[in-house]
Design a protein around this nucleic acid. Structure first.
Lengths: 338, 338
DNA sequence: GAACAAAACGTTTGCGCAAACGTTTTTCTC
DNA sequence: GAGAAAAACGTTTGCGCAAACGTTTTGTTC
């Protein structure tokens, strides 16, 4: 039924070793013999079985990527960029979507690390490092992406969260805004924590009164920003900072629908998805923080392959920098420096 | 180093067969023995090796999905929905992104069908069925998604393309529009062909003059709609039909930037991504065609698992229906009926 | 308590391939 | 033309597991 390497060997009149070496270029084979082998392969329509190969070599040529939300543009773009890098290097990509659910993350990590992939990229939805760490077999190649833990146990690739938010608050304060609200993502995530802490510190440094009600948390899922906004608007904000692209779009739409005009009625600073439609329309009325998603994806791909190929490689922590685009200087882009 | 089934067997004082049967529930094992086995598994931290298992059984519990553009919201949403269905049924999903490139599609299909996955979902970028067909090993479970071929060889899941466009033209014509332009996707795709042919037929049926320049093709990638629009606007259109969500967003933004107002200056009908931001903002100024992306994804998942579990199952062709939302009746939704 | 069945487990094989280990043939050297 | 080296290929094993095939033990019947 299935054509195997020994069928090829038989037809070509050589040994299976020769066929194997011919295919994989792992030993010298005379060109006449190669010829015979390739002819037999073509005649039989032989394709090496990936399962058997993986089993034999222990290499699957597959990387897993645990993502909190595939349909979120931020992650979709990152997946694209990761896939691009991996496929260019002979690897395939398995996606697992946790939908910000810890149990699903556990299930998926366990499944994938049990011999299904060579390495794992994880944008974890977990807060507790112990719980995450317990899932990873000793020595298994893992790279944390976008969301990290407070240990040096795994390599990681993320973007700076503190500086852009700190800068945002300062700019708003300098503009005369006093009551600055902020909409963060899930409170348990490292990215959210860093951003909120930057907000707090900047507020203090700018001598602006802190007020717990000015800090709201959404879950970066659909319609989560509206509730946050309602609560912020009730308190009468001069400005709002949004920590996530999807919620930024919601914010803009919601304000638009309420007849609140950006920059005239309220100041807005936000993390945005670079090519999101709302961003294109409103880029000139707000400060935008644009994360280098594609670089993030590529760096993640690089790091995981590096670890897969050399599991002893030292832990590596890469922090990329977001672009900050103030609306007052359209066209001008500046890089925050951490 | 690695804990295998025989390590477990040894520690539990049973045979490997018993361990295997205990894990997989494939033979009666007394509860005391089960106890011993599970205890040994826990003590050693044993996890069955997925590679070996796949190799042995021939089942990988993985489905491949060949996608033309991951970052496109339409496909990202579909991936999400496919993944949801598959993971609920114990399968993982491998993504391959072709970026609308036929060579990449060939490479990926070949790779995945060579023992890496149990079945394949394909939204093909190819026009030539022979070329596609040549890539698929005999009997390999394949389901075509969104883009189909003119044969009954593979099962498929797609949405109706003809009816919504036909209806669009009729509505525009009834409104008095004469010069109706259309922006289609890649000319080689079945979806594009059906939509354009619906346009032609409707134009003829409505006694509107055909004009080749009114038909423009974009590639559904970034910025492709602008060129089409420039050419259409040059000809002075009363109305424009856009056949794809991403290009719809571009169109709306571009018209907005040019100061052309929807419904006052020009009529717009478009396929849109349901939760896209621009759609949310402009839904009341245009006719929208909304494809049932999630149902599409789920149906695709259902079909491919059905084929994987029974390769002899009859060919199945599912055609889903898009929702048509006329802007004149906000809130009212109607279903086109093919 | 012989004969037989059912319960509960063990022994062994082979999936397809890569690669360690081995053999033969050719070529070269003096 | 004997001996050694290099070239070119062959034989065999085992990766970890599932399952086909076999065996032992424990009832059960008359």
């Amino acid at each position: 039924m299935k054509v195997t390497i020994s069928d090829v060997a038989k037809l070509a009149g050589v040994s299976t070793a020769t066929v194997s070496h011919t295919i994989n270029n792992t030993r010298y084979v005379s060109s006449e013999t190669k010829e015979k082998v390739y002819r037999a392969i073509a005649e039989l329509g032989y394709t090496p079985d990936a399962s058997a190969r993986s089993f034999r070599t222990g290499k699957k040529k597959i990387i897993g990527f645990i993502v909190p939300d595939i349909a979120n543009k931020f992650f979709a773009t990152m997946i694209e960029s990761v896939e691009k890098y991996l496929s260019a290097n002979g690897y395939q990509l398995i996606i697992a979507n946790t939908r910000e659910n810890m149990e699903r993350e556990e299930t998926n990590v366990r499944l994938l690390t049990a011999g299904m992939v060579d390495g794992l990229l994880v944008a974890s939805t977990m807060e507790d490092f112990q719980r995450f760490d317990a899932l990873i077999p000793t020595g298994f190649p893992v790279v944390l992406v976008d969301r990290i833990f407070d240990t040096k146990k795994f390599s990681s690739v993320c973007v700076s969260n503190f500086q852009p938010i700190y800068r945002s608050v300062c700019r708003l304060a300098a503009k005369g805004d006093r009551r600055i609200g902020i909409i963060g993502g899930l409170p348990r995530l490292s990215s959210t924590k860093e951003r909120i802490s930057a907000y707090r510190q900047a507020m203090a440094d700018c001598a602006l009164p802190e007020e717990e009600g000015l800090i709201q948390y959404g879950d970066s899922m659909e319609k989560s920003a509206q509730g946050c906004l309602d609560r912020l608007l009730e308190r009468g904000c001069d400005a709002i900072i949004v920590c996530q692209g999807l919620m930024a779009s919601e914010t803009i739409i919601y304000l638009h629908q309420k007849g609140i005009q950006l920059s005239r009625d309220i100041d807005l600073v936000s993390f945005v998805d670079y090519d999101s439609e709302v961003y294109t329309l409103y880029a000139d009325q707000m400060d935008s923080i644009i994360q280098p998603v594609e670089e993030l994806g590529q760096a993640a791909g690089e790091q995981i392959l590096k670890r897969v190929e050399d599991p002893e490689a030292p832990i590596f922590e890469k922090v990329l920098t977001s672009a900050y685009k103030p609306y007052s200087q359209p066209g001008s882009w500046s890089h925050s420096d951490r």
